[in-house]
């Protein structure tokens, strides 16, 4: 049985949802225009992933196999709607920025993936750690992507103008093709780094 520490760190490096498991691509591409949005989405995913992992691993023996997927999705959807309400009430600008991608956290393959692959088979304690690890790994990679796209796409980081006025922002990064290409190149880069440092 892997130790608790390994369980946590595996989410950040070995099983990084974005670069290793290649999950949750839809919100990643759309939200990572600015670092703030990426951070907001990352935190919301952690919140939902944590709650759903806890509840799903709690009821894992009760739910019959045939209705497993609809039941899990309903639990995840409840938490997502809760996050949606909280953000709408208390953090309106972030809610505006994330827009359609908050409801789409429900079908974000990471959460259902962790529910199916992990929470369903492990105790609540382990599921919590797994959720934190995977969620953190996802947020770090998402913010990294957000920083790169914002830095070169708009010359700022977290909204603060960093590049000098002479810097001509690369508009393509703010638009759809830029997202695909940046993420593709980053995936290639991380594959190289993982092989180079011998992480299998």
């Amino acid at each position: 049985m892997t130790t608790l520490a390994q369980e946590f760190t595996k989410g950040i490096v070995k099983e990084n949802p974005l670069f290793r498991l290649i999950l949750g691509m839809c919100p990643t591409l759309a939200v990572s225009v600015t670092a703030i949005n990426s951070f907001g989405m990352g935190v919301s995913v952690i919140a939902v992933l944590l709650c759903s992992n806890i509840v799903i691993s709690a009821v894992r023996n009760v739910i019959p196999a045939k209705v497993r997927i609809p039941a899990y999705i309903m639990i995840i959807a409840t938490f997502v709607t809760l996050v949606e309400m909280v953000l709408n009430a208390f953090a309106p600008e972030l809610f505006e920025a994330l827009g359609i991608f908050i409801p789409l956290i429900v079908v974000n393959c990471i959460i259902l993936g962790r529910a199916e692959a992990f929470a369903r088979k492990n105790t609540i304690g382990r599921s919590i750690i797994d959720a934190l690890g995977i969620g953190l790994g996802y947020t770090i990679s998402l913010v990294l992507l957000g920083v790169i796209r914002e830095l070169f796409g708009a010359g700022s980081i977290f909204g603060y103008q960093v590049m000098g006025t002479a810097f001509e922002p690369m508009g393509v990064l703010a638009v759809a093709p830029g997202a695909f290409i940046t993420l593709g190149v980053m995936l290639g880069l991380f594959n190289y780094l993982f092989k180079h440092f011998g992480i299998e």
């Binding site: 009760v62 739910i63 019959p64 045939k66 209705v67 609809p70 039941a71 309903m74 639990i75 959807a77 409840t78 709607t81 809760l82 309400m85 909280v86 709408n88 009430a89 208390f90």
Partner: peptide, 27 residues
Amino acid sequence: MTLVLLIIGVLCGTLLATANNATEPII
């Protein structure tokens, strides 16, 4: 199977309803 889905539906419904009643006025 039917029972499980029903119970989950009811539980989620109540949870969301209470949350909505709390946050709706603020929004």
